[in-house]
Nucleic acid binder design. Sequence first.
DNA 1: ATGGTTGATGGTCAA
Length: 264
Amino acid sequence: MALRLVTWNINSIRQRLDLLPRVIEELNPDVLCLQETKVTDDLFPHEACEALGFTHRAIRGQKGYNGVAILSRRPLSDVHTPDWCGREDCRHLIAAVDGIEIHCVYIPAGGDVPDPEVNDKFAHKLQFVDELTEWYRTAFSPDQKVLVTGDFNIAPLETDVWSHKQLLKVVSHTPIEVEKLNALQASLNWVDGVRKFIPPEEKLFSWWSYRSPDWKKNDRGRRLDHVWVTPALAPSLTGAKVLRDARDWPQPSDHVPVLVTLGD
DNA sequence: ATGGTTGATGGTCAA
């Protein structure tokens, strides 16, 4: 049975509840992985999600910042929540669906200054990716059916940003971040489920800053949201779509939903 | 070199 999986940095689930039905109408996900839910577990809008058909939910939130959730039409099992960098900051949530282990991850944004010596947030980001890399390398095998998705806050390809040259010193596209993301991808030979269908030569973005008065005018976006699968799952990938239109919806998130389909 | 916007917060901060 086919699986439709969507990842979306929702930037506050409570501010975005009215947009959830539109995502569902456009993409019809069986599994919805959310980042930046920005809500504690006791305040999570379970009823609204239930009413939309997501009867199975794994959540992990905190006050004010971060927070991840996996909403599903099919049963979830083996829910767990790894921590990285010695923090419990609600950035990683795992649940299994249809024999696939799904990892919903929110990698730290990293602040403004791309120097770990002077910017603790950038140091945290790099360490987070390093720890994740080592964990995947040692605790998993490419033979396992695993999918990792979320807001990675790194745009690895030149075509994943509006200007490669102008973003080389901008956090999200610096060489050290791209190098570390590539190492993470190599940890299990992860296959980029989106670039399998939308060629790497083609510019593709999933985020546009709120700070631009008109996001479409210059189209200064970045592809920060990703869906990767292990080689064991790669043959079952059947399609991908970035819902660019969602950036134009009323009171949008700065990220748009990204869909990957598996199976027929 | 700086500002621009949004969300949660509530003596701002993260993105």
